[in-house]
């Protein structure tokens, strides 16, 4: 992946003064007031943040190939607005100003997987919906800690405001920046019957496998599936979606039990699992087209193989 494309996912957006305005608006005028500010701020980003515009357009071009260019620009603007709403919602929850209703579709089978003391489980998350907002509620629901494998937040202002990558009740962080990408800790956690959450979309320039997504071959990271195949743990795909101004939906479209066939190249097996995940993601994009915050051109050719 080019440095420019990588920057889109790690770029610092928002400074302390800008975030202060959002905090004050939220305090004085509630969620609607803070959301209102977004329409101005996102207009600025739409014009000047070319890198983010381009990676969002890569998605919109494939999701709405037949729409006019002007409509596509409007769709990118909608993505920017929705991402802003996500950040405000997270701050609203973390700062204790209120809560959202979380409709979690966890069922008996999932409950028994999550609470199996002998074997852990990998929760595959994606930058769609608002996984950060629903994670505290998920952890409470399953009554055990969730280990998150996640990169440290680069933007100090955002990190302070949203308490990103800080451990709190029920959430423990494993940093991939450590020796061997934190695999010793996460393998140990899985062995203890814990749940380890891994992101399944952004590759951050690392090795990836291809799968068809929105009509073309796209690149996905495959760490979750390799870890699952090695440890014998299932992969549960978790998606969240903002369904109204006060409600999030949490659902689990697939449970994949990765096991190498032994008859073919292991990479082929991995591609099969990734394709199943990509299909789930495509179904998600059909139902919630404007909750796509992957911020990476996953169809781009130039990347490590």
């Amino acid at each position: 992946m080019s440095d420019e494309k990588l920057k889109a996912t790690t770029k610092k957006r928002g400074n302390r003064l800008g975030l202060w305005f959002f905090k004050i608006s939220l305090k004085l005028f509630g969620l609607a007031g803070a959301y209102g500010l977004l329409y101005f701020v996102c207009s600025y980003y739409l014009v000047f943040d070319r890198v983010t515009f381009s990676v969002c357009m890569a998605y919109i071009n494939r999701r709405y190939p037949d729409h006019s260019f002007l409509r596509k620009i409007y769709y990118v603007y909608k993505l920017f607005i929705n991402q802003g709403k996500n950040l405000i919602d997270r701050y609203y929850i973390i700062s204790g100003q209120g809560e959202f209703e979380i409709e979690d579709e966890c069922n008996e089978r999932l409950n028994s997987l999550f609470n199996n003391p002998q074997k852990g489980c990998i929760l595959l998350l994606t930058h769609v919906g608002n996984w950060q907002a629903i994670m505290p509620s998920f952890s409470k629901l399953i009554k055990k800690p969730v280990y998150l494998l996640m990169r440290p937040e680069d933007n100090a202002a955002l990190k302070d405001m949203l308490d990103i990558d800080s451990e709190r009740e029920g959430i423990k962080i494993i940093s991939p920046a450590g020796y061997l990408g934190g695999v010793v800790e996460l393998t140990h956690a899985l062995g203890q019957g814990h749940i380890v959450s891994i992101m399944g979309d952004r590759t951050y320039g690392s090795d990836s496998v291809e799968a068809y997504f929105l009509g073309q071959k796209a690149h996905f990271p495959y760490a979750a599936f390799r870890i699952a195949a090695a440890t014998g743990c299932p992969v549960v795909i978790l998606f969240s979606a903002r369904v109204s101004n006060k409600k999030y939906r949490v659902f689990y479209p697939s449970i994949i039990q990765p096991q190498y066939s032994g008859t073919q190249d292991k990479r082929k097996d991995i591609e099969g699992w990734i394709q199943e995940f990509a299909q789930n993601l495509e179904d998600y994009a059909a139902e919630y087209p404007f909750q796509w915050f992957v911020l990476e051109d996953i169809w781009a050719e130039e990347r490590k193989q």
Partner: peptide, 9 residues
């Protein structure tokens, strides 16, 4: 690092 998972297991 993913090979390390296999070694741990």
């Amino acid at each position: 690092s993913l090979d390390a998972v296999e070694i741990v297991v």
